[in-house]
């Protein structure tokens, strides 16, 4: 037991070193990579950045010791809309987790559908739009098992990543992120 306590103390002491300071940037939407949207659509004070897949990739490959939850959804997707409150709740209750809602709405409908939806539901998580029509090229790069049905979610931290082609409730989300906590 004694060696164990020593190690705990050792670790606790070291945990405050260096990179952990970043974790205190709660709610910080600044990303650690240069964002390169192909377009920004603005309306009603809301900006939606539109990314092609190449420039979307950094969102799913950050190496910053944070848990990232990337949810693929669309305003017209009923099960997606049904689970959005749980992703919002996750972001609210776990500010250290980065939640990004990746809309697959049609780019032409951003002002008509997406921005009003964000406004009406007062979404707090970051919403971006992925516009890459040739899905057969990029879907397998997300996960080899993904059929392309939404909702779908990636949870990752550094090099550890898990893909889910399913709907979540809040408890299921908490269980899923628990696997990434250490």
């Amino acid at each position: 037991m004694k060696p164990f306590s020593v190690i705990v103390a050792f670790v606790m002491g070291i945990a405050s070193c260096g990179s952990n300071e970043e974790a205190s940037n709660i709610g910080d939407k600044e990303s650690s990579f240069e964002r390169n949207p192909k377009e920004v659509v603005s309306d009603a004070g809301i900006d939606v950045e539109v990314f092609d897949f190449e420039n979307f990739k950094p969102f799913i490959h950050q190496n910053d010791d944070k848990i990232h939850v990337i949810n693929f959804w669309a305003t017209w997707c009923i099960p997606c809309v049904a689970e959005l409150p749980y992703f919002e709740q996750l972001g609210a209750e776990y500010p250290e987790i980065e939640v990004v809602l990746v809309s697959l709405d049609f780019p032409k409908k951003i002002k008509e559908n997406l921005i009003p939806f964000i406004q009406k539901n007062n979404l707090q998580s970051e919403v971006i739009l992925l516009d890459e029509p040739d899905a057969n090229k990029w879907i397998p790069q997300i996960d080899s098992t993904w059929s392309g049905a939404i909702p779908a979610t990636i949870i990752y931290k550094n090099d550890k990543s898990q893909f889910y082609e399913q709907s979540f409730n809040f408890v299921e989300l908490e269980v899923a992120i628990a696997a990434f906590k250490n």
């Binding site: 099960p79 697959l104 057969n136 993904w146 059929s147 049905a149 939404i150």
Partner: peptide
């Protein structure tokens, strides 16, 4: 091939 679509209800 794969493509984005609506999940089956």
């Amino acid at each position: 091939t794969v493509a984005i679509g609506c999940s089956i209800k």
